[in-house]
Simulated assay, not measured.
Amino acid sequence: MNESLKPIDDQTIVITGASSGIGLTTARMAADRGARLVLAARSEDALRELTDEIEASGGEAAYVVADVRDRDDVRAIRETAIERFGGFDAWINGAAVSIYGRLSEVPVEDMRRQFDTNVWGLLYGSLEAAEHLRERGGAIVNIGSIVSDRSLLLQGSYAASKHAVKGFTDALRMELEDAGAPVSVTLIKPSSIDTPYPEHAENYMDEAATLPPPIYAPETVARAILHAATQGDREVTVGGGGKLVTALGHYAPGLLDRIMETVFDRQQRAGRPPRPGASALEESSGELAERGDYEGHVSETSLYTRLRQRRRTVAATLVGVAAGAAYAGYRTLRGGDEKRAGEQRETVERDRSRRPSVSRFGR
């Protein structure tokens, strides 16, 4: 365990996107485990209801009405955490919006607004969190997706935003490590999760949107997030189905392209007319909702993710040993190379000193 990370029941945790889906599920799970919470979302009604629910169960929570696209709103989240609880120990960037449709059919303006939430909102939150945690230690947990690694047909702009999230998260991790800051930075990459994600999406298809199976419960992601907040994971893919997709994309990208084109297009169409009403890109739904309306099988656990996180400590130790051995080998080889180079220089100089003097015009 990272020494700067506390048990959940001793943490104050900030969660953006706390009124729906993964953020809401994580907030409730963290409250059940004794964490103090700072909840952020756009809907004050939903936040007030969630805060009242947590406090009625004996927990502690504060909320901030915030649109993460506005950096001043994000700063207000940080300030509220400091004023109410004296600071925070983990910051979870969960706010995101989705769009379904082919890239040629989605207005660029909508893509830009999606990036404002998914990328810039997460960037603002990460920077505010890093500044606060740099001295005291803690965890930053960013919610990416399996599409951080492998783009998905009909969700191209969402995949592009999550690729950006991965790039930013990796860079931030390295900078904090290089500075010696006691801050863990984790990227959580969920597979398809049974949340209101498709119902809240901006949809440019001629059918209602749905998710390609296999589908996992939001609790699988919440458990991974809270594990990262106490153990400091680097990256965690939630769901073996998603891991299979990304592995296939790595080893056989052309084959996965064809599978995407023939199977995933159909699997993201629900076979009924699109839902009426505004999407989350336009406004918050205002309702607390963890789950969506997916009608198929939902896996309540992910064996792959549980095994992955249980083995993290052992794997990290083995990686550390291997890295140490590799570095030692490198130093040995480098020392041998330097020694040989020195001997070669000495030989050249000795040969030069033994050569007879030669005039420019011959002997």
Results as ranks from 00 to 15, higher is better:
E199I: 04
A66I: 03
I22W: 03
T237P: 05
G254H: 10
R173I: 04
Y216I: 07
T305A: 09
E219V: 06
A179Y: 04
A270T: 01
V97Y: 04
L103D: 06
R223K: 14
V263S: 14
D32C: 08
D178Q: 12
A40P: 03
E349R: 15
R150G: 03
V64P: 00
E53H: 12
D73N: 15
R306C: 05
A323I: 02
R269H: 11
L154F: 02
D233G: 07
L307S: 11
G144D: 12
S359V: 01
D265L: 08
D206K: 04
V141I: 12
E53Q: 14
E55Q: 08
I259V: 13
L244C: 04
A159F: 03
G249C: 15
H200V: 06
G101Q: 03
G362P: 10
A81E: 00
H163A: 11
T12W: 04
E79G: 00
N203Y: 05
L333Q: 05
E338T: 09
R310Y: 06
A66R: 07
R42E: 00
A90G: 03
G23L: 03
L248Y: 02
F115L: 07
V238R: 09
E300W: 06
G121N: 12
E295T: 13
Y158Q: 03
M174S: 04
H163N: 06
A66E: 05
S192V: 01
T305V: 05
D72K: 02
M29S: 10
V298C: 12
T26W: 02
M111I: 07
A208G: 09
T313P: 13
A217W: 07
E175G: 06
V147C: 13
Y251K: 12
P190Q: 10
L248H: 01
A315P: 11
V106P: 09
R308S: 11
V65M: 02
I188Q: 07
Y204N: 02
A270K: 14
L333M: 07
T220V: 06
D337N: 09
A278Q: 13
A341T: 10
A61Y: 02
T246A: 03
L152G: 01
A46F: 02
P196V: 07
W120D: 08
D72T: 02
I193K: 12
R334Y: 01
P276N: 08
Q344R: 15
E207P: 01
D293Q: 03
E349N: 09
V321I: 11
Y327L: 15
E55W: 01
T313L: 13
L288G: 08
A208V: 00
R69W: 02
W91R: 00
P182N: 12
S20V: 12
G59A: 11
L153R: 15
Y197N: 11
A160Y: 04
R363T: 11
G17Q: 10
L39K: 00
A224R: 11
L318N: 05
